[in-house]
Design a protein around this nucleic acid. Sequence first.
DNA 1: ACCTGAACACCGTTCAAGT
DNA 2: ACCTGAACACCGTTCAAGT
Lengths: 222, 222
Amino acid sequence: MARTALTRAEVLEAAASLVKRHGPAALTMRRLAAELGTAVTSIYWHVGNRESLLDALVERTVQDMGAIRPAGRTPVERILSVARILRRELRERPHLIAMVHERGLTERMFLPAQQALVHEVHAAGLRGARAADAVRAVQFQIVGFLLVERNRERSPAQSPAESDLWAPPAGSAGGTPAAPDDPELARALARPADPERLFLLSVRALVQALLADGAASRPASR
Amino acid sequence: MARTALTRAEVLEAAASLVKRHGPAALTMRRLAAELGTAVTSIYWHVGNRESLLDALVERTVQDMGAIRPAGRTPVERILSVARILRRELRERPHLIAMVHERGLTERMFLPAQQALVHEVHAAGLRGARAADAVRAVQFQIVGFLLVERNRERSPAQSPAESDLWAPPAGSAGGTPAAPDDPELARALARPADPERLFLLSVRALVQALLADGAASRPASR
DNA sequence: ACCTGAACACCGTTCAAGT
DNA sequence: ACCTGAACACCGTTCAAGT
């Protein structure tokens, strides 16, 4: 028997906490009921079923991420700040973000960021369909990178890891890896990547290319 | 009773087929046993448990994707061909790819592509740590884009969709969307994206930026 | 309006027993 | 070496019944 009356908000809170503490797999209706000190079936009265519960949880996460306030003096700088903010917020909620992704709502979660990107791309001088392409390209790049990064963190031990592939063979002239004659490159690939650096480097390169393209195409002809 | 003796390969084949036909959720040990006409427990003898079965399935998928043969006359063209090949192969196996991702093996699946990328980046004149950065940036971009694209396809109906956000408001001067005064941009964002076009456009922009950076940095100083 | 326990149909996995 | 059924501990969900 629950001391105070059970509320929908209380259920969502407990569910979110369960996911945060023990991962998405731990969120079962029965464990949740035990956590709340109620019968399993009470939960059904408040949230319908497990599917709806997950939907509500995801919706909460999306709301939590809030609006984006870009910072910086140039459009490129401000777009980079948007990327950095998104990365930080995502990394604070790894489990919930995974759930958002599994439910196919990743795009929806990034709509506020899209608004910010539109503003910056416009400020950089891009217009029309070309501006829309730039916005979407950057958006896909940011979201995609974060998904890959999270995926990579979750499984640190991979059968043939990069480090195996690119580590120098036993003999100096050895050779399964199709590495060209560039030991420094091989060494760099054998080292673990620095995701933050790679992230900013990638976004900056893409943004610069897209904005330069647009600017160049305005004065000159097609 | 199975007519012929049950083999591990047979189990994997049936499991893959089940996933392909009815999605990952349909792959339960009991359904698989029914499909094969054996007792559930026989499967355990051949593959250990469900976890190992999934591992083996993922391994199979990774092997199936095979080596990458780039085509084209310039490094940029050849890198784009790698991207196109990866996209096509991934889209042929949507369910299995989702499983690969969930198990954190996306990176591993793209190792053959990494080898091809290293070759092309080298051919374009990049060396050392800078070449490694370029390889990883392109790799993350391709993989990330494909994950986002798949995610987007899986849930076509999103609460506030892009089309809602950017559609022209009722009155001509209306206004919740923070869209700058660029109706063509708004219209472009309200239309569904063309993923193939966006994919190639993005990869091309990033690759050109990365390769130009490298080339420019060789003759000039730091 | 809210909560309950019993019951149903499903899981993955273990184990002792068969051949 | 390979296969089996029975059993265990878990699921999500429904439903009739309580207050």
